[in-house]
Nucleic acid binder design. Sequence first.
DNA 1: CCCGGAACCTGAAGGC
DNA 2: TGCCTTCAGGTTCCGG
Length: 270
Amino acid sequence: MPELPEVETIKNELSPSVIGRKIMKVDIVRDDVISKPSADEFREKVTGKTITGITRRGKYLFFHLDKSDDILTMHLKLAGSLQLDPETDKFTRAVLHLDDETDVHLKDPRKFGRMWLEKDESAVADRLGPEPFDKDFTVKTLAEILKKRSSPVKVVILDQSLIAGIGNMYADEALFEAKIHPARPAKRLSPAEVERLYDAIKNVLRKGIEKKGASVRDYFRPSGEKGEAHTDFLVAHGAGNSCPGCAGKIERIVVGGRGTYICPRCQPEP
DNA sequence: CCCGGAACCTGAAGGC
DNA sequence: TGCCTTCAGGTTCCGG
């Protein structure tokens, strides 16, 4: 499931193979993988363009094109991956054929992933909260975000318009590390808890990037390999496991409609 | 404004 | 063996 560490890994590992390469041909297996403009217009505007760089904001990827007004933008949603020269299979939704014979496949078992054209990165980025690793994301920033909200703290940190990049797995890991129950109203966290959460968010995301992302299910790196970050997960998807911090058992609950993993002893209810 | 829930999809895994 | 249910999960939209 691509969250910030997975999308960052894809950007880092795809860049050396695609930067400076020209897109010779675009195969679109299903038209609805292109959100805008039409599949035909997309093909026309992208074909023949050279990729000058890839950037990431939150969980979005931007492929910058030479001599173009358009930025090829992607969101992999729940299960999408970008793979270099894989076998074509029933999950291949689109292929970018590059001028050195490299093929970049968008694979996506669940068909949620999309690519489209934007004139400007800010059309997407302006709707997102700060990047967790930007200088302007401080403990104070997080405290300001949390203190206005009575929603469960987990719902708040998953809100991309407030903080960009955190998804379900890393939210659970961060809240466990900070020893905060995910259903706690955000505004009721103490200053010490806010600080623990701040450190935990950066820590779990940093470790996720170091381990090249978490392959709990559908995530693959551009090489087709899995990431290793999930092997360090302490609670996410670990119902029934023993808590690493106490004798308790990890439980699955639902918070904000999302499957949520906690240690009920280390993360006591409000 | 806030919140909950549905919709979008389908494969894997577990229960019976 | 096979059918049925549950779970996974990011974003957007709709209704209360």
